[in-house]
Simulated assay, not measured.
Amino acid sequence: MALLLGTSLAVAPHARAADTFLPISAPSTQSVLPGKIVYAQLTIPDLTQAKTFYGTLLGWTFKDIPVSRGRYAQAMAGGRNVAGFVEHPLPSDDEVRHQPLWLPFISATDPDAVVQTAKVWGGKILFKPHDIPGLGRETIIADPQGGVFAVIHSGSGDPVDSDTPTAQGEWIWSALLTDIPVNAAGFYQKLFGYEVQTSQDTSSPLRYLLESQGYARAIINPLPPRLPANAPARWMNFVQVDSVGATAEKVPQLGGKVLVEPHLDHNNCMIAIVADPAGAVFGIMEWHMPTVAGEAK
């Protein structure tokens, strides 16, 4: 699996006005669901190119955010704020190591407390807790195996859990790929209070499912065999699409690459792994609500 070997990160630029950034939840829910992945952010070298790619591929629309320096935009899917884009030049000395990275935002009641726990258990604090007007309080952490993620206490509350099927263009699933899954499961459990379930079938290694509030939030998988054993961990975020096959066909037409062709995963969901024109890797998934036998599909 052709995946990035490092990270390139930038926090959101400073806003000119306190109410500039779109909230994660609108209307406000004031609900905190620790452990739920509620947002994502990408630092890319060309915001215009990214808008064209993601807008055409996923149907995202964008709102440009006035900032004091640089360019920033937020992406909307079905009227919901799903992602932030930070335009920032990438270092040219090592293009592979500095490929753009989709950063998942994990909800927490107190990001400052999460930082202290992360330090105790071997995490590295990349950006100290800070307030982003309109979004909330956030921090960025690398886990002991190098997996990078953000922690946020949303100022508007977290999107509520629902059994309503995820719509085209919304994030639906996340997976952490790491060399020692059991250690990673313990680390994230200590930070977010996850219930950890094991998942294994005869054709795959042991996996760890992270659950909170009775919902599955993410899965921890071993690194693919073709990657070096000491490769850093990395998060893989999946977007719901109406057709994985049709979406994957569009990726090269828009300047991206299909890294893993459409196929059924171990849960019989159709998935593919793709990269945008700047090299940021993400998954696309076609998941449908299970139907009761005899019901119309």
Rank of each mutant, 00 (worst) to 15 (best):
P228H: 09
V160D: 05
T56A: 03
A108L: 06
L227Q: 12
Y215Q: 13
L3D: 04
L191F: 03
W121Q: 04
G283Q: 08
G79K: 14
V114E: 01
L259F: 10
I44P: 02
V82K: 01
R69E: 04
N237F: 07
N230F: 14
P225M: 09
V274S: 13
P23A: 10
T29F: 09
H130I: 06
S154L: 06
V281D: 15
G70P: 06
Y208I: 09
A17C: 01
A272K: 03
R137S: 08
P165L: 14
Q99H: 01
T29H: 04
V241S: 05
F187K: 08
G186F: 13
F149N: 00
V281E: 14
P262N: 13
D265R: 13
G35K: 07
E138G: 10
D158T: 09
N237E: 04
T166D: 14
V114P: 00
V151F: 06
P159W: 07
M289H: 15
L5R: 04
F282N: 04
A248K: 07
I152P: 04
N230Q: 12
I125T: 05
V148H: 05
R217P: 03
I132L: 11
E286M: 08
N268D: 10
P66A: 11
V258L: 01
I271F: 11
G256N: 14
R217N: 10
T202E: 09
S154A: 15
V281K: 11
N183T: 14
N230E: 10
S92A: 07
L101G: 02
P13I: 07
T202F: 01
L9E: 01
R69A: 00
K36E: 02
D161P: 08
A293D: 13
Q30I: 11
H263R: 14
S203V: 09
P66M: 14
P262W: 15
Y208N: 03
G155Y: 11
K63A: 09
P181T: 15
L227M: 15
I219S: 11
D46L: 09
P181V: 09
V11Q: 05
T202V: 02
P228R: 11
A231H: 10
L42K: 01
P159K: 10
T61R: 13
P111D: 00
G6R: 00
A77K: 03
Y39Q: 03
K119C: 03
G157L: 05
T7H: 08
V182R: 13
T164A: 10
